[in-house]
Design a protein around this nucleic acid. Structure first.
Lengths: 341, 341
DNA sequence: GTGAAAGCGCTAACAG
DNA sequence: CTGTTAGCGCTTTCAC
């Protein structure tokens, strides 16, 4: 005998009341005689009854599943993980649970996961876009499922959007290096098609330009190893930069490794975009433009939950400030006088 | 007009076939005339029909939701995040999705989340126990929902269990330090009630004992800051240890901070349990006993998915090896001759 | 091959 | 306050 899960009917029979009365008790309606309610509760307890959410949702007008989907680059990386955690906390305060998935910068995977979460009736989605276009959302998602974008803006679909002030942060970084006397500042950026790289690059360019310096950019870097290799080559050139501005934390770490290996970590300056754990314990400690992933997660979750609750205002763009954290590597002065041209 | 989601009935009407034929097509049954099937598929496309999973699951014999729950200490910490990622990959290969939640070492939260995931019909759970007893699972979880435990063993409930060889790793660490000449080796451990701390402490004790040394333990440390404070006090004592064995990565990091501050990082030896990002870039680089969270996640996911597929063998205990990674901090020799008593 | 009817576990609408 | 009836969207059973 397959121990069948008890149903409301079983409870009703056990308590000697009608099905509907059980339903009322389970749903916390107050229009039930306390004595009956008590009997029902006793029956629920002894049968170990649990309401079947799926069946309940099927009939209910208000079809919420109490679940939101979170699609980030990689649930395993520190930035995404911190964001995830903030989303979870914000959601939990409202009794909402989080389905999370990693995109790995793969547009196909983005679309697959969106579909999968839609099928599972997520009430809404928080998405860090991997692909260049989110137009597919209109077709793949029921019209009443809101999406909030984080980290990168979306194309082709309207939704609230939570972004770091990337360009402003990059400007800040470059100005900081200039203030410390640097004139040959190289930018090492991530994938060219990532919107964040674009913004950071734009910030770099405008700051370098404004100071009358010559830009020097390498982008399309995919990981820590690529960044390490590129940095090593960079310092083999006749007139290497005196300072590096790195566009992502993995790139920063690659650059740190390379500078170590070249024994240039005590003279080549470095400012990295994104903070990372233990940046303060390296020697020199790494100066960064810190984003605030937790704040981004909170803002995104709040925006999404409001939308789910029926907020219908125009999509907003929420921008989260970045902070320059001077720790040492960004305050090294150039060893060799830069000649500027 | 509320754009009602199209149902199978709508599709059937549009295609001029019966509801059941649509169901057959949607479920990939082969006993449908190709011409009809094509018409049905066309209708599905033009109406943008998606099957309602909840309704489908309700009637189906095989009530799978294709979702598993993952309950870890904190989705935001590197260990849990790496484990999460491995679970996700393993699950995704089977079309299964992952609901994740953080427990924060809180037993109540553990139970709440288990209930919540059970209500959402997770097909199974991977749980890193926070509380001392998992007996509640028998009542809170339907009998056919398997649980696989990771990181810590469970009490009061039978399930596969994926553990690191904690005690063996601790023995290894202590022997390593002894081999480098240390005789005053302190152990800094985490919460006393955590099973992992117990195992690591046990390993420490047995290795210290075997070498005829005097154990010196501080445990119950909750975080990086506590570890930092304790370490600082430790080195203010008349005869401080010459080596530290730290029982968790947060504790290791706290100890590193303290040693830095005291300027003892170049002479006091340190081996930490758990690897952590950038451990190799610190000065000195930190020697660790590395667990393999990804392998643990994979093993747990595989075990769970097998159980979900009906595997009914006795619960297994899967133990995952740890590795000593010598990087420098664990190979420092004692500065002051230890007198041993 | 195909379809009509029944019903999964629950809630909505309406009577009593 | 309580119960009855219908039906959510789908799969099952069993006729055709």
């Amino acid at each position: 005998m397959t121990h069948r899960r008890p149903t409301m009917n079983d409870v009703a029979r056990a308590a000697g009341v009608s099905l509907k009365t059980v339903s009322r008790v389970v749903n916390g309606e107050l229009t039930v005689d306390p004595a009956l309610a008590a009997r029902v509760r006793a029956a629920i307890g002894s049968l170990n009854y649990r309401r079947h959410l799926g069946a309940s949702m099927l009939r209910r007008k208000d079809r919420r599943t109490g679940t939101i989907g979170l699609l980030v680059e990689d649930v395993g990386n520190p930035f995404s993980a911190a964001l995830h955690r903030a989303v979870e906390d914000e959601a939990r305060a409202r009794g909402v649970h989080v389905l999370a998935g990693s995109l790995d910068e793969d547009p196909d995977r983005e679309r697959d996961l969106v579909r999968a979460f839609a099928r599972r009736h997520a009430d809404g989605l928080i998405l860090a876009p991997a692909g260049p276009d989110q137009g597919y959302l209109a077709a793949d998602l029921p019209p009443d499922v809101p999406v909030v974008f984080v980290q990168r803006p979306a194309t082709g679909f309207a939704g609230d959007c939570v972004l770091a002030r990337d360009a402003a942060g990059a400007v800040r970084a470059v100005r900081h290096l200039i203030a410390y006397g640097h004139r040959r500042i190289a930018f090492l950026g991530g994938r060219a098609d990532a919107a964040t790289t674009g913004e950071r690059r734009r910030g770099y360019l405008s700051a370098v330009d404004a100071a009358g310096l010559r830009p020097f950019m390498i982008d399309g870097l995919r990981g820590s190893q690529a960044a390490e290799a590129v940095t090593r080559n960079l310092f083999r050139r006749p007139r290497p930069p005196t300072a590096l501005f790195t566009g992502r934390n993995l790139i920063t770490i690659g650059a740190v490794r390379a500078l170590r290996l070249l024994d240039r970590h005590r003279d080549a300056a470095l400012v990295g975009f994104d903070d990372f754990p233990l940046a303060d314990l390296l020697e020199p400690a790494v100066t960064v433009i810190a984003q605030d992933p937790a704040e981004m997660g909170r803002a995104a979750a709040r925006a999404l939950l409001e939308r789910i609750d029926g907020e219908t205002a125009e999509p907003r763009e929420i921008s989260i400030a970045t902070t320059l954290i001077p720790r040492g590597s960004g305050e090294l002065r150039p060893q060799v006088r830069a000649t500027g041209s």
